[in-house]
């Protein structure tokens, strides 16, 4: 059993390497570090590797030996961010890293594709759902960066009253504060802060929004399946494409683009929740077109 698993892992690495060697140009070497080994991440690795003119090596939760290091270090998720400081690469790219957590690692040769969606994009989604009907939009936050993002939008949306409140995550006291916020609002926008929104807290939050005919937007697809109404989401394939685009940009221009939010995204809606709340919402594609201003 143990041998079989290890064998599979090597086979995968070999396969990726062969795929990369397929092109004849002497190519860029990209070292991809995954936090864990699971099906969806393997799928991501193969999408990043598939037809490209760079060579991809995959490592699980560890950096390659410095002698083996390639040209670009590609890290997946927040947990691996400390590797940005410890590794010596001409270019380092964090894929699916939270924007706030990435900010201390900002450097000349380090960039990122954020795991979170910008607040402005989620507000656009709320606006597309409400179609401009005046409403109270609540947002609880721990990190002031989300509040600043929201604050910048106030003038743009005079029809909305933004109830933005810092709620330190400390168990039941924070849930009471959050529930109070839900009760004096119509929509709750979840920030991508796992201290506030996680498997343990989501039940209380969703049941409270549902009790008050309120609805939750964001922060990602998982929450929409759990019972949030909708969210802007970027799929693994979007991230694979973002990573490829960043690496190609580096190959062509010798530097990585600035850290950014994923430029490829879509909308996901929980139809059951919408129906139960009596909300009539356009389909995902129409909402996306509205968001993109088409």
């Amino acid at each position: 059993m143990k041998k079989l698993l290890k064998g599979l892992q090597y086979a995968l690495l070999l396969l990726l390497a062969v795929a990369a060697y397929g092109s004849d140009k002497p190519s860029l070497k990209v070292d991809l570090v995954l936090p864990v080994d699971n099906v969806s991440l393997r799928q991501l690795a193969s999408e990043i590797a598939s037809p490209s003119d760079y060579q991809l090596q995959v490592y699980i939760n560890e950096l390659p030996d410095p002698t083996q290091a390639g040209d670009v270090l590609l890290l997946v998720s927040d947990g691996l961010l400390p590797m940005i400081n410890s590794a010596h690469y001409p270019a380092k790219l964090a894929l699916y890293a939270n924007s706030v957590r990435f900010s201390p690692y900002r450097a000349e040769n380090a960039s990122a594709v954020y795991s979170d969606q910008p607040i402005a994009r989620q507000i656009k989604l709320i606006d597309a759902i409400l179609k401009g009907k005046p409403a109270r939009i609540a947002m609880a936050w721990e990190s002031p960066s989300y509040h600043q993002q929201l604050h910048q939008l106030t003038d743009q949306y005079p029809q909305y009253q933004f109830n933005s409140e810092q709620i330190p995550a400390d168990g039941s006291a924070s849930q009471r504060k959050l529930n109070r916020l839900i009760q004096r609002s119509d929509v709750l926008l979840a920030t991508p802060e796992q201290n506030l929104y996680n498997a343990a807290t989501i039940r209380g939050v969703l049941l409270a929004t549902y009790r008050h005919q309120n609805f939750l937007i964001g922060p990602n697809a998982g929450f929409v399946s759990a019972g949030a109404l909708a969210s802007v989401v970027s799929k693994p394939s979007d991230y694979a494409a973002e990573a490829k685009a960043m690496i190609n940009h580096y190959r062509d221009h010798g530097r990585l683009p600035m850290a950014r939010y994923p430029q490829r995204y879509s909308i996901t809606i929980n139809r059951n929740v919408a129906d139960s709340l009596g909300l009539v919402i356009d389909d995902e594609q129409s909402l996306l077109n509205t968001l993109r201003g088409q």
Binding site: V36, S40, N61, Y96, Y210, G222, N272, S276, L277, G278
Partner: peptide
């Protein structure tokens, strides 16, 4: 080795489905 975020790395199963179809009320 896994920080909480990893569990959610495209893995929707990590979150319980709270508003299940059986719990949702009929629309008015």
């Amino acid at each position: 080795a896994t920080l909480p975020s990893h569990a959610q790395l495209w893995d929707n199963e990590a979150l319980p489905v709270v508003l299940t179809p059986a719990r949702l009320k009929q629309s008015r």
